[in-house]
C-alpha cells in the first residue's frame, strides 16, 4: 500500500473531544442487551473494544457513533460532537463505481463540487485502488471493498473513526492493509475506536482496551496493563483462552 499522507483539512488541529457514557443501557424488544455502562473515553488511542461474541462490542460502538439511542443513561461528547465516520464489518457499498462512492460521501459532506474528483482520486491512490476507480464497487473483492470503505472514511477527514470488526472476513494480506490504514488514521490525529475478537490484532494496535463480556464493561485499561495484568477475572480468563460467557 502507498504511504498515507496527512490531509490538510485535518483533525489534529482541532481540540480532542471526549466521549462520556453515563449509565448507558440498551435493550431490544424487551430484552436487556447492554449495560449499565459508564466510562469516559480518554487518551489518543487506538482503543480496542475486546470481548467474546455477543459481549455487546458492536452495540457499544453503535451507541457511541449515534446509530442507536440508549434505552436509558446518556452518551455525550464534550466539548461537542466531533466529525466522525464508521467502517462496518460488511462494507456497505452503493451500486456505483468505486470513485462514485467516494464522490457521494464528499457530496454528503458538502465538499465543494470542483474539489470532489481530486480528493476522491487522491484517496483511491492512497489505498491502492486507483486502477479500480471505475469498477462497480460491489463487484470488488472483500478486501478491496473494505479498503474502499476506509478510503471513504478518509475523505471525510473524521476526528473519530469507529471500526466494527473490519477484518473478520478478510485474508491476512487484506488484514495487513486494513491495520496499516488504521495506524495511518491514528498518525494523522484521528481517534480510532475499533472492535475485534482477535487478541493478536489487539496486541498489535491497541493503546488501551475496553473489555466487555455479557453486555457489561468489565475494564478499561491501558494495553500494556491489560495484556499483562488485567483487572477483571473475565479478561484474565479470556486472555488465557478460556470460554467466557
Amino acid at each position: 500500500m502507498t504511504v498515507l499522507q496527512p490531509l490538510d483539512t485535518h483533525a489534529s488541529v482541532c481540540p480532542r473531544a471526549s466521549l462520556i457514557f453515563d449509565q448507558v443501557t440498551f435493550s431490544y424488544q424487551g430484552k436487556h442487551l447492554l449495560g449499565p455502562c459508564s466510562f469516559t473515553l480518554q487518551g489518543a488511542g487506538p482503543t480496542l473494544v475486546m470481548g467474546p461474541n455477543g459481549a455487546g462490542k458492536s452495540l457499544l460502538l453503535r451507541l457511541a457513533h449515534g446509530l442507536l439511542a440508549p434505552a436509558s443513561g446518556s452518551v455525550q461528547w464534550l466539548p461537542q460532537r466531533p466529525r466522525q465516520a464508521m467502517v462496518f464489518q460488511q462494507p456497505v457499498m452503493l451500486r456505483r463505481s468505486a470513485i462514485a462512492n467516494l464522490i457521494h460521501a464528499l457530496a454528503v459532506n458538502k465538499t465543494p463540487r470542483r474539489q470532489r474528483q481530486q480528493l476522491a482520486e487522491a484517496a483511491l491512490e492512497r489505498f491502492g485502488l486507483s486502477r479500480l476507480a471505475r469498477t462497480p464497487a460491489r463487484v470488488l473483492s472483500g478486501g478491496e471493498q473494505q479498503r474502499l470503505a476506509l478510503a471513504r472514511a478518509w475523505v471525510l477527514a473524521p476526528q473519530v473513526l469507529f471500526l466494527d470488526e473490519p477484518t473478520s472476513a478478510l485474508d491476512p494480506a487484506a488484514i495487513k492493509a486494513v491495520e496499516e490504514a488504521v495506524l495511518a488514521f491514528q498518525r494523522q490525529g484521528t481517534r480510532v475506536v475499533m472492535t475485534t475478537h482477535d487478541i493478536h490484532q489487539a496486541r498489535r494496535l491497541a493503546a488501551d482496551v475496553l473489555f466487555m463480556a455479557n453486555g457489561q464493561l468489565l475494564e478499561y485499561t491501558p494495553a500494556t496493563q491489560f495484556f499483562h495484568q488485567p483487572e477483571s477475572s473475565g479478561a484474565r480468563a479470556y486472555l488465557r483462552g478460556e470460554l467466557v460467557e
Partner: peptide
C-alpha cells in the same frame, strides 16, 4: 435496509 446504517453514519438528510 441494506444502506440505513451507512446513511445515518454519513449524517445524510432525508432528501439526500
Amino acid at each position: 435496509a441494506e444502506y440505513q446504517e451507512q446513511f445515518v453514519s454519513l449524517g445524510m438528510s432525508r432528501l439526500r
